[in-house]
Every structure is written in C-alpha cells, then in structure tokens.
Simulated assay, not measured.
Amino acid sequence: MLLSTYEVTEPVAELFQFHRGQDVFFMLMLVAFLMLFIRRYEWGVALATMLSFVVAWPLYLLISNTVLGIDINIESVILAVFCAITLVIAIGVFLGQISTIHYITAAVLFVPAYMFNEWFIFSFLDGVLDAGGSILVHMFAAYWGWGVILGLRNRKINDEPMKTSVHSVSFVWLASMLLLVLWPSFVTALLPPEEVLPAMFTCYMALVASALSTYLLSYILKKEIDPLVYTYAMLAGGVAIGATVNLVGPLTGWIIGFIAGLVSTWCFYYLHDWLNKTTGVLDTMGVHNLHGVPGIVGAVAAMVVAGAPLAQLWAILGTLVIGIVTGGITGLILKIFKEPKQLLDDSEAFDMTEARTPDSPLIHGEQHGGTAPA
C-alpha cells in the first residue's frame, strides 16, 4: 500500500526543520565568539554564554509545557532556542558588569519577560510581520539589555580598558563570517517548507548588501576599516531582513540590507559614544548598534514594503517599553548583589595567575603526562 503524500512529506519537512534548528543552536554558540575581542576576557564570555543558554532554553520549554500546556515538539524546541539566543545577544550589553554567577539570575528573570513580549506581539496584537525575529529577537535583546544597564548603573565599566589583540579579533572575524553563512537557517526556522528557499535567497541578498555598505561607509568616513565595526555591522542586513524575509524579493531584500549596514555603521561610529556620554552607562558589545537600531529598520521596512498593519508599530513601541521596563527591573535586582572585583577580565571567574605567567603550561601547550603535538 502506498503512503499518502502527507505521510511522506510531513516527516521530511520536520527533519528539514530539525536541521535548521541545529543551525540556530550553532549560531547561539557563535555569538559568544563574536564577543571575544577583549583579550583578557574570553573564557568569561564563553562561560556567561553557556550559563545563559543552559538556564534559558530549558526554562522556556518547561514553562511552555507545564504552565501553558504546549507539547514539546520541533517547533517549541526552536522557539526555546530563539529565547536563549535572544538572551545571549542581550547579555552582550552588560557583559563584564556583573559577577558570572549572576548570569543565572538574569536568565531566570529574562525568560518570563521574553515570553510576555512574545505573547504581546503574536497573540495580543494581530497581523504583526516578524517571521525572522527583527522585533522579537533583536529589538528585545537590545532594549532589555539596555534596561539592565540603566538599572544596574555600573559606571566603573567606563574606566576599564578594552584591549584587543590580533588573536582575539580573529575570533570575531571567524564568528561573523560563519554567522553570515548560517543566518538563513535562523530567519527561516519556523517557515513552511515552500517558503524556505526563496527566503534564503532574500536573506543572503540582505547580508551581502550590508557587508558591502558597511565597508563603503567605513571607508568614506574613516579612510580605513575598523575590524570590529566591520565584523559587527556587516551582519545588520540579517537583523533587518527578519521582519520581511518571506514577503519580499531579492532586490528589496538587498535594499533593506544595504540601508541596515549604513545605519549600523553610523551607530557604531557616532551614536554609541553619544549614548555612553548621555546616559553614563556602557553597552559593552554595542548590541544596540547591531541589533536594536537595525531591528527597528527591519520592522519599519515591513510597513513600507510589505503593507504591515498598524499593529506593527505597536509591536515596535511595545517591545521598546517591555524590554526597557523588564530589563530595568532585572538591573535593579542585580544591583543588590556585590559588584565583581574584576571587570572585563577572566580572573573574575577563573584563577588566571598561573595561566598568565610566561612559563604557564597553557602557553607552552604542556598536557598532563606530556606535551601537546606540534
């Protein structure tokens, strides 16, 4: 007896979605490498990422299943990793400004706030366009993170040096280039199979456009390329295209990406320092420049080129308010705890005394019982 078309295609579609979901998990880990540019603060960033992930991902699933009665399936698993990657992006705003153990507290407080914003956008409002997370993921990450630093008010971070090295910035180059390759999986993870390939083309068009416009504007403004600005802002097209990735063609996607790259680059060069001086707080990794503003660009683009209803505007404004308010509450709670003794330094969480000496086994590659291969 022949299987019906549904019985044949449904498992294949689910398996296809599973692999896109795996790519999103991989991207979450790559976000950590995107933030490893401070040469004395690499292990700490990786650990903060892991703590955020191992708390946020299962907590989202448990609340969905036990409180909301939602079955655990491939879609709920992907929704949970969306929540976790949003948190990992968000902690970039206040990385190094709290003790490592308190990222667990931040994650516990983040998940209900994220789920409330998710409900507001897709259940309370009707007709919001955001298949690839320009609002839900990128905007919320930036403004929840900014709420945290506004509540935390850890001004000491402004006096800490952020020294880099070729090695540390090379991590960022690698992560950025790999994220560019994987980004279509992220924005198409919840789309039906027939929409995936067209959306993939549109996503890549947006990404290559922002990689180009970032370079051109950097060259025009500075006559040289800042590797950190470039490796971050080149991804702005992927952030902005999320709201319309399944609704516009490659040319429109390219235009959205090109504009997003210009805006993100300008924010890194000018808005970042202005916000720091105006508010007195520091967005450690410049999350607002890559995720916040390009996220708004993408959300507004949905109104201009895809006919999004007025609900789109309410989603933008609501995400701003919900993010800043719930993030601010989180920052005030985190402020109760002791400030870390070392800011932007692995020694806050690890004993680095031996690791940083000239004769350290870590430097010379010695292993237990021998030496590492050449």
Score class of each variant (00 low, 15 high):
Ala306Phe: 08
Ala211Thr: 13
Leu216Met: 11
Ile322Pro: 00
Ile333Pro: 04
Val45Ser: 01
Ala106Lys: 00
Pro184Phe: 13
Gly44Asn: 09
Leu62Ala: 13
Ser134Leu: 05
Ala13Asp: 10
Arg155Ile: 14
Leu332His: 11
Asp283His: 11
Thr49Ser: 10
Ala211Gln: 14
Trp266Met: 05
Val187Tyr: 02
Val300Gly: 08
Gln22Pro: 01
Ile255Val: 15
Leu216Asp: 05
Val55Thr: 11
Thr284Ala: 07
Trp173Glu: 05
Ala374Ile: 15
Met29His: 05
Ser264Asp: 07
Gly365His: 09
Ser168His: 07
Ile104Val: 15
Ser123Ile: 13
Thr66Trp: 13
Ile316Phe: 06
Gly253Tyr: 04
Val128Gln: 00
Val24Ile: 10
Ala206Ser: 09
Gly237Ile: 09
Trp146His: 04
Leu87Phe: 05
Val263Met: 08
Ala199Arg: 00
Phe258Thr: 04
Met162Glu: 14
Ala311Asp: 10
Leu235Gly: 04
Phe268Cys: 08
Pro358Val: 14
Gly370Leu: 13
Leu235Gln: 04
Glu160Met: 15
Ala315Ser: 06
Val12Phe: 13
Tyr6Asp: 12
Gly323His: 05
Gly307Val: 12
Ala84Asp: 01
Gly365Lys: 12
Leu207Glu: 09
Gly327Arg: 00
Arg39Lys: 15
Glu354Ala: 10
Tyr230Gln: 10
Leu191Lys: 03
Val281Asn: 02
Leu332Lys: 15
Ala199Met: 06
Trp43Leu: 13
Tyr143Asn: 01
Phe140Tyr: 15
Leu15Lys: 15
Val172Thr: 15
Met205Phe: 14
His291Gly: 04
Leu216Trp: 12
Pro309Gly: 14
Ala199Trp: 02
Phe268Trp: 08
His19Ala: 03
Leu136Tyr: 01
Ala355His: 06
Thr231Ile: 07
Leu59Ser: 08
Ala206Leu: 11
Met29Trp: 13
Asp345Glu: 09
Ser170Val: 13
Leu251Gln: 10
Pro192Asp: 09
Lys341Glu: 12
Tyr60Arg: 03
Lys341Thr: 14
Gly96Pro: 03
Glu14Asp: 07
Met35Glu: 03
Glu194Met: 13
Thr105Trp: 10
Cys203His: 06
Gly307Tyr: 10
Gly44Trp: 02
Thr330Asn: 08
Leu152Thr: 07
Asn276His: 13
Gly261Ala: 10
Ala90Tyr: 03
Tyr230Ala: 12
Thr86Met: 03
Val148Tyr: 01
Phe201Thr: 05
Tyr230Thr: 14
Ala260Arg: 04
Gly237Leu: 09
Lys341Gln: 13
Met50Thr: 07
Gly237Tyr: 14
Leu150Phe: 07
Phe201Ser: 10
Gly261Ser: 13
Gly151Asp: 00
Val45Thr: 11
Ser165Gln: 06
Gly133Met: 08
Val245Gln: 01
Phe110Cys: 01
Thr231Val: 11
Thr326Phe: 09
Asn276Phe: 10
Tyr41Cys: 08
Met115Ile: 11
Asp23Trp: 15
Met35Lys: 03
Ala302Phe: 06
Val297Asn: 02
Leu150Asn: 11
Ala48Lys: 01
Phe116Arg: 13
Pro294Met: 06
